Simulated scan of single mutants.
Amino acid sequence: MEKIHNFNAGPCLLPDEVYQSSAQAILNFNNSGVSILSISHRSEEFINILEETRKMSLELLGLQNKGYSALFLQGGASMEFLRVPFNLLTTKAGYINTGNWSLKAIEQAKIFGQAKILASSEDKNFSYIPDNFEIPERLDYVHFTSNNTIHGTQFQKIPQTDNVLVCDMSSDIYSRVFNCDKIDLIYAGVQKNIGAAGLSLVVLREEILGNTNRVIPAMMDYQEHLNKNSLYHTANVFGVYTCFLNLKWLKKQGGVEAIEKLNNKKAALLYETIDCLDFVHGTAEEKNRSKMNATFYFEKPEMNKIFDELCLEANIVNIKGHRTVGGYRASLYNALSLESVKVLADVLNQMKLIV
């Protein structure tokens, strides 16, 4: 079968060896004769996997032995939009609005207190990252979304604040070296650079909890999940196992520092191609372009059909833009090869011979 070049924004491409190992585990986990879908979440085999996965998740972020704990929880990042203010918001929190996912997080925070928008890029259709804005003191926390998958923008530096800092890092976690120890709580849906959809990873300093004087249902309580080592309820065994396999793969590549070099090459090749063609345009301001989600559109609508046909011939799939904005989006997550980006660049260059 010819190679498929999958640019899906999420659930995203995972490494071939993760697919192969997880498929084998469904049939026969560790030569036990039992499927991983049927082993106990309380078994020694699974608890060892869970603990190693939690350990790797901290190590790869440079947070091991720095006072952080890692949790694998069900519900994805959308659940964390709610769980963060449930655990942290007493009176007022500050949010930096850079798009759809920020807005969803803001709406959930309003249930528990004031969600003050500190800065927003909505005035230019979220095509940039706000800068040089004031962050007040005495906020319960400040929240930002490190990468905007829909509009293709990305924070290049961490907001400076003395408040508790929270980051939704769903779409660029483990893709680049970032000063994560400047952030007090990181959450991410795992379906980008961590594993298969259905879980969220939460990394936090335990000392930030317990200040709301609010009764928190156990399922929503970070402290309860910490007390139970991510086993308050039946764990998503297979989901955690795919995270285990993928983080092992990342370590084998040389970790985040090594994968960032590859991601930089992929992004540079695609953006250079777009910038050299006068009939295709990127949607994000150049200084804020995402290295995970490159968004672009064609000058003339009739070019879309030509591009779609060329992509079909080249086995390029899942490159349409988000339904709310249209255009195109090439997602360049860790497992996507440089070869796939070269194929896409070739297709774009072919168009100049046609249009």
Rank of each mutant, 00 (worst) to 15 (best):
E17G: 06
P136L: 04
G94R: 07
N227K: 13
L262S: 07
K104A: 15
L247Y: 01
Y68L: 01
V347A: 10
S230K: 06
N125K: 10
N349P: 11
V280N: 06
L63M: 01
M219I: 15
G255Q: 01
F244G: 01
F46S: 01
S32F: 04
Y95F: 15
A109C: 03
Y141T: 07
A9K: 14
G75Y: 04
L353I: 11
V256G: 01
G327R: 11
D184F: 04
V256H: 02
N304R: 12
I135V: 01
A335G: 02
L262I: 10
D184K: 08
S35D: 01
G189V: 04
A314E: 01
A267P: 00
M303S: 13
P136M: 04
D346T: 07
K252C: 06
C167T: 08
I186D: 00
H281E: 10
N264V: 06
D275K: 15
T212H: 10
G62P: 04
K265L: 08
S171H: 14
N87D: 01
M220R: 12
E260K: 03
Y174H: 02
F279K: 09
G67C: 02
V240T: 03
I186Q: 05
D308L: 10
A23H: 14
D162G: 13
Q64M: 11
M220D: 13
G327W: 08
A267Q: 02
D221Y: 09
K251N: 03
L269M: 07
V142S: 07
A119P: 00
G99W: 07
I208M: 11
E80C: 15
D131C: 13
P85H: 07
S102D: 04
S43V: 05
R42W: 14
K124H: 09
D140P: 06
T145V: 15
K192I: 09
S40K: 09
A235G: 06
V325L: 13
N132I: 00
V347Y: 11
S331L: 05
K55H: 11
T91I: 15
N263R: 04
Q24G: 10
K261Q: 04
Q114E: 10
I49H: 12
L247A: 03
D16H: 05
E257C: 05
E207Y: 11
E286D: 12
P301Y: 05
G152N: 06
P159Y: 05
K266R: 00
L63G: 02
A9T: 12
V325K: 11
G327L: 06
G10T: 00
Q253F: 06
I259T: 02
G327S: 09
I306W: 09
H233G: 15
D140M: 03
A330F: 13
T145H: 13
I186M: 09
N288S: 08
N193R: 14
N147M: 14
K300A: 14
P11H: 04
L13F: 05
N315K: 11
V84R: 13
V84N: 09
L165I: 00
E313S: 08
Q156F: 11
F307H: 02
E2Q: 15
I354K: 11
L277E: 03
E122Y: 08
K300F: 13
L262F: 08
G113L: 02
E302M: 12
S69I: 07
A93V: 08
K182V: 03
R329C: 14
R323D: 14
N193L: 05
T91E: 15
E257V: 06
G152S: 05
I306F: 08
F307S: 00
L103P: 08
I150H: 12
E207P: 06
S40R: 09
G239Q: 05
I96T: 06
K342N: 11
I39V: 04
E302K: 14
